[in-house]
Simulated scan of single mutants.
Amino acid sequence: MEPAASHHYWRFKPHILMVLCQLGYTFLYFITEASFKNGMNPHVYVTYRHIVAGFVMFPFAYFLERDKRPKMTLVIFLEIFLLSFLGVTLTLNMYFTSLRCTSPTLVASMVNTIACLTFIIAVILRLEVVDLQNPRGIAKVVGTLVSLAGVMTMTLYKGPIMPSLGHSAIHFTQTTVIQENWLKGSVLTVASCLTWSIWYIMQAYTLKRYPAQLSLTTWMSFLGGAQSAVFTSMIEHKGVAWRIGFDIDLWSTIYGGIVVSGLIVYMQLWCTKEKGPVFVTMFNPLSTLLVAVLAYFVVDEKLYTGSIVGGTVVISGLYMLLWGKEGDKEEQVSTIEHQYITHEVDQEDPKK
């Protein structure tokens, strides 16, 4: 790879990885919805998925991070335990239950609030710097507000239904009756978005003390799976719920474990360490648009003009915020250069 091409690759590597993450999330919505309609218990799914992720990621974490993995202390273990409880046991159990009660399009739309919530929390905790006298600082705030307006549009305004293209390419066979409870699903979605935002923020702090992304992914998978197993056993007393056949339930568990809880979580941790939690969450709207489009073309789900308008507004806000975020790197480089020049001048002039 030529030096110029290599420079551009490393500069945009976090962007590329986050786009790949959103592609992975897009397929997750549909494969889990099919599994839930086939009778898979969402809480059992979360448990099995993270157990799979833990066993898959363990050898990579053990061998590749043997020399750079920090020593595990009680404080770090308790912090990872809390991180697992927040991001896996609490967030995902609410999230997938809401998906079972509503639809992929609604859930994917509500997930966009994570970016706005994460940005606000990050500013409060001073993980994000907002300089309102700088155009890029203004772009961060305006981009966040524009994205939030787009999310509200997609959620509250439906508008005319887009004409159907006919028969769907894929039909989900529903073997159990799923009672759609949109109020319950909406409340759980909002609650999961709030805890999800806090989870992203907490990752930034944990990575400073435990900067081994593969090992952290493995720990969260095992601990989250164990916590979810305890939680599920408390509310699900039927042994048949834990049985899994050689069907969509198995494939959704394998996909969710390897691709999402394993590979995608690792990539997000890497991007969080490099660019911060706000950068990671701002790519969620891409998944929303992909889910809406695929749901319309593939499974013949209704597509409203409000989703199109709101999605366009959300993407506009996304790019405004990303443009503002690019100024952080330039400002950091400028500060380092200024410190270096000042140090050189002080070295040349010992009287200073």
Rank of each mutant, 00 (worst) to 15 (best):
V293W: 08
V278F: 06
V280C: 09
Q268V: 02
M267H: 05
W270F: 06
G276Y: 01
E274Q: 06
N284G: 11
S287P: 07
T281H: 04
V293E: 13
F283T: 08
V291T: 04
S287Y: 01
L290W: 04
Y266L: 06
T272C: 12
L290N: 07
F283A: 08
V293M: 15
M282C: 05
L290G: 09
P285H: 00
F279C: 12
Q268R: 02
M282W: 10
P277W: 02
F283S: 10
A292R: 03
L286C: 13
V293D: 15
V278H: 06
M282T: 06
T281M: 02
P277T: 04
P285M: 00
Y266C: 02
L294S: 12
T288M: 07
T281W: 02
L269G: 11
E274T: 02
A295R: 03
A295E: 12
M267G: 12
S287G: 08
C271K: 00
W270D: 14
M282P: 08
V291Q: 01
F279R: 06
K275L: 11
N284E: 11
Y266M: 04
M282H: 09
V265K: 13
V265H: 15
A292N: 08
V265Q: 15
W270I: 05
K273C: 11
F279M: 08
C271D: 02
S287F: 01
A295N: 10
S287Q: 06
V293F: 14
L286A: 11
T281P: 10
T288K: 02
V280S: 13
L269M: 11
V265P: 15
T288S: 10
T272W: 05
F283Q: 07
W270V: 07
G276R: 01
E274K: 01
L294G: 14
A292L: 05
T288W: 03
Q268A: 01
S287A: 04
F279T: 09
L294T: 10
K275P: 13
L269V: 06
T272H: 06
V293C: 15
P277R: 03
V265C: 14
L290H: 03
V291S: 03
M282S: 07
F279D: 15
L290A: 10
K273P: 13
V280L: 11
E274F: 00
W270C: 09
T281D: 09
A295Q: 09
F279Q: 10
F283C: 12
T288D: 07
